[in-house]
């Protein structure tokens, strides 16, 4: 039995088919990147895992059990509005545990401190989200989902609004944290380099309706470590170019069918 499983999942909005019958298995602790052109339906698939949208047909199973409405097992990290502005950094992290009855107040405090440290925000615990950088706000969101105890992190272009340097730093940290915490990640992006760098496995999507164009096992090609040195290696470039060619092919398809 696989950990997370999409079984002929489809989605249509009225006459528009957004996701064609989609099958995929994700292993526990795997970092899967959904790569594809904007508006191709990859976000819809990710949101279905979160329970924020329902498949029109087919099923998504977590440990063999069909997924129900949203709960804290599947946490979201958005690109914008990722932290509540009226709560401090620490308050946002603690918010992940607000509805948990299995933790005492002391445990919640300890976990808040732990995850703040993990994302390097201990010194900013009492700061307001509006007064820290966009990169720090994304760390807050990551810490919040970890504190909530989400076993799957669903990340919707979380670093899309950051500058190149911050983005790289966060990518490194996300990879480290994901390894340390052993969580499963589904990460949506249209940035080829980001996909190559972060993923254990990249799923390349076609244009809408979303279909798998290609599956690239990054770990088999580059090894399990994501380091900055790796980023400069020939193997990394080859892989990046390969992904880029795949993504480009979906784009040409669009131009070819355009009137």
């Amino acid at each position: 039995m696989s950990y997370l499983e999409f079984r002929s999942v489809t989605k249509r909005y009225g006459p528009v088919e957004v996701v064609a019958p989609f099958d995929l298995e994700v292993a526990e602790g795997e970092f899967v990147v959904f790569l594809g052109p904007s508006g191709c339906g990859k976000t819809t698939l990710m949101r279905m895992v979160g329970g924020l949208e329902q498949p029109s047909s087919g099923r998504i199973l977590l440990r063999g059990q069909p997924l129900g409405p949203p709960d804290r097992r599947r946490g979201m990290v958005f690109q914008s509005y990722s932290a509540f502005p009226w709560l401090t950094v620490a308050g946002n992290v603690a918010y992940g545990m607000r509805y948990r009855r299995d933790l005492t107040a002391a445990e919640k405090r300890a976990r808040t401190a732990h995850f703040l440290r993990l994302v390097g925000l201990t010194d900013f615990a009492h700061q307001w989200p509006n007064r820290i950088s966009g990169g720090m706000r994304q760390r807050v969101a990551i810490a919040r989902t970890l504190a909530a105890g989400s076993e799957i992190l669903l990340m919707d272009e979380p670093f899309g609004a950051l500058d190149a340097l911050r983005r790289e730093r966060l990518q490194l940290e996300l990879r480290r944290i994901q390894r340390e915490e052993g969580r499963t990640v589904i990460f949506v992006t249209h940035d080829v380099e980001e996909a190559a760098f972060l993923a254990d496995r990249v799923i390349v999507f076609t244009r809408r309706p979303a279909r798998i164009l290609a599956e690239v096992d990054v770990t088999a090609r580059l090894g399990p470590e994501s380091t900055l040195e790796l980023r400069g290696s020939a193997e990394f470039f080859a892989l990046r170019n390969e992904l880029l060619a795949l993504v480009r092919s979906t784009d040409e398809e669009e131009e070819a069918t355009a009137p």
Partner: peptide
Amino acid sequence: PHEFHETAMTVGAPGWRRLTDVSLPA
């Protein structure tokens, strides 16, 4: 923003708590 509500939903907030904990302060 729908992101606020969806954040609350995915940390397990019941519907009515989203009114008091998200809508109202936001």
